[in-house]
């Protein structure tokens, strides 16, 4: 039975709905010996910044119940080296490439995207709005605002500015540590984002009870993995009711059925993150799982699943 797995996010037509999440797939080469990368719906790169970043000191990760905390600190070679050393390989794979970008202020965000926008082989940008310790924009609501993703006015300002710098597909990746995710998604939509990606990791912490010290050198870290999935599902479901632009569902996807749950909640496609660490070919196993579900349920067209949740 010929299944139609294609889906669309912004201007990007995906042959299937499985992408890999930023920071969990390196720059793809790390996975080339495990499976044919061409089988993926698309790739989101590790977040790139204007200048190279050393990242946080160790310890950077710790496992938690059905999840993990990470505080990698955006270790990356910087935009110039990315273009020289990583992009040529990514281009050659022949599937949509979305470059994840992050900056500490609006001007820098625009600058990174402008530099990348001149390059061929990039299909879109994913704005990582969960950068800690941003220098506050003029429109920041309160001093408690720590990330772009925490404040709808800041989201609007930075997405709006970057929108002017590129005509490629623009994904706004939101953080979950907010009281109303749909408000943040609406702000991104208003500012011209083509897609919202929900969600990034949850700010979390683990303490060693013997030493009384935080386990991570950075003290706090981002929680990911299957433990966050029900919250991510709820957020996709909430946002789907409000925004018109497509949603990329992310959070603890381990199996095809997990991915289908996101699609049903309203995601047009999904990203696989932490599962890549347990099983390097998790992403295509998940794709196979989606196909198995469709075959079993006699569903021909993926679009019949998207947003099919009954309220």
């Amino acid at each position: 039975m010929g299944l139609d797995l294609s889906t669309k996010i912004g201007k990007i037509k995906l042959k299937n709905p499985v992408l890999v999440a930023s920071g969990t797939f390196g720059h793809a080469k790390e996975f080339e010996n495990f499976f044919d990368l061409k089988k993926l719906g698309g790739i989101v790169t590790k977040t790139i910044t204007l200048k190279p970043r050393l990242g946080n000191p160790p310890q950077r990760i710790v496992e938690t119940p059905s999840g993990m905390l990470n505080a990698i600190g955006l270790q990356n070679p910087g935009v110039e080296k990315f273009i020289q050393e990583k992009l040529p390989y990514l281009k050659k794979i022949g599937i949509p490439v979305i470059v994840s970008v992050m900056a500490y202020n609006v001007e820098e965000f625009v600058e990174v995207v402008k530099i990348l926008d001149r390059e061929s082989g990039i299909d879109g940008f994913e704005m990582n709005l969960s950068c800690p310790n941003v220098s506050y924009g003029a429109k920041a609501q309160a001093s408690s605002v720590k990330m772009f993703a925490h404040d709808e006015r800041m989201i609007e300002e930075v997405v709006g500015a970057v929108r002017k710098a590129t005509s490629k597909t623009l994904v706004a990746k939101l953080g979950p540590d907010v009281s109303d995710i749909s408000k943040m998604a609406l702000a991104a939509e208003r500012a011209g984002a083509d897609v919202v990606a929900l969600i990034n990791t949850f700010m979390a912490m683990a303490i060693d009870i013997k030493t009384r010290k935080p386990v991570l050198a950075n003290k706090t870290g981002g929680l990911s993995g299957p433990c966050i999935r029900p919250i991510a599902i709820r957020m996709v479901w909430e946002a789907y009711k409000k925004v018109k632009i497509p949603i990329l569902g992310i959070g603890g996807i381990m199996t095809g059925n997990d991915a289908v749950e996101f699609l049903v909640a309203g995601a047009s496609a999904v990203q696989v993150g932490t599962a890549n660490f347990m099983n390097p070919s998790a992403s295509i196993d998940i794709l196979q799982g989606i196909q198995n579900f469709m075959n079993k349920e006699k569903i021909q067209d993926l679009n019949k699943i998207i947003g099919s949740v009954k309220n």
Partner: peptide
């Protein structure tokens, strides 16, 4: 010996200074 996640360079979790 440091805590690790993936074991093949994808997560950048097992940093050593």
């Amino acid at each position: 010996e440091v805590p690790m996640a993936c074991g093949f360079g994808a997560c950048l979790g097992c940093a050593v200074t």
